[in-house]
Design a binder for these strands. Structure first.
Lengths: 150, 150
DNA sequence: TGCGATTTAATCGCGGGCGATTTAATTTGA
DNA sequence: TCAAATTAAATCGCCCGCGATTAAATCGCA
């Protein structure tokens, strides 16, 4: 596959990214179901565990999600009892999202998940790390292009 | 970042895959909108352009999608006039999906898209190819694990 | 032969995901 | 000062994605 055209390469790459994401999603679904979290909800939790009390846009910026996606998602998380949503007193346009006791405690139950997934990949840490960096490069390239188009 | 734990690595990797997929999806959306296709619909078209007249399960197997996802998607594609859906006379359980004239002709209009995306990545072909192989490895690892869990 | 098991799509309900639009709060600047 | 521009979330309609279930056709085997 050395004389492959760029466009065929792209076709295969977009397919790989597409199906790898689905594979991750499926794996996480089974691991997260006992905790009562979905995969995107888990990503939000990771951000909040790292840095509690963030705005909707703040979270959206890090995950690349619009408020039209996040608002209903956060409402479901609120209903599940993991987060609180309250208007910022300083700036009433903003909604601040923060962990409840339950949400904070969930951190410990989620402890083993990462290692479990890393093992499921069947790839050594060094290789995963290299892949991570390549993906970041790719994403930055695409993001730059998406921005330029506006 | 050399003494990173496997679970942190996993967190970052799943995030990268997640957001890279979204970045691809957004880019394709803008490119495909003029053709009247969505990104998953485009993936189906690629399969049919390569190999016309496939069953729902055949397509689903290649894309990793369930009939519960494909049936409505294919119905929308049929309504758009790109494919035909008809019961297989040999085996009435099967539904065969085939290109219409319009769908086949669309192949030419989609010509430039691959190159366009490959350019948008801002990465040289060799690097993309290497990334492709790494992703395939990762996906196969995850898929194997998902199967083993059943 | 005929009946239970299997296979194939379709359906349903729910949770994402986004573009376009709306509403409300804040900022800007004439 | 105060009206226009901007910003933050929310809402709406549509498309995807899956698990669970269903309906129908086929297969397999006693």
């Amino acid at each position: 596959m050395s004389e492959m055209s760029k466009s065929i390469l792209d076709q295969m790459l977009c397919f790989e990214v597409y199906s790898t994401e689905h594979a991750f999603s499926r794996l996480y679904k089974t691991l997260l179901a006992p905790l009562g979290l979905t995969y995107p909800q888990f990503l939000v939790m990771i951000l909040l565990w790292e840095n509690d009390d963030q705005t909707v846009n703040g979270i959206g910026g890090q995950l690349g999600l619009e408020s039209s996606t996040l608002t209903p998602l956060l409402k479901r998380m609120e209903k599940s009892g993991f987060v609180r949503r309250q208007r910022d007193a300083e700036d009433e346009r903003r909604v601040r999202v923060s962990l409840t006791e339950t949400g904070d405690a969930l951190r410990h139950e989620a402890k083993g998940i990462g290692t479990c997934v890393a093992d499921a990949t069947g790839m050594p840490g060094a290789e995963l790390k290299a892949l991570l960096l390549e993906l970041r490069k790719l994403r930055n390239g695409l993001a730059t292009h998406n921005l330029a188009a506006e």
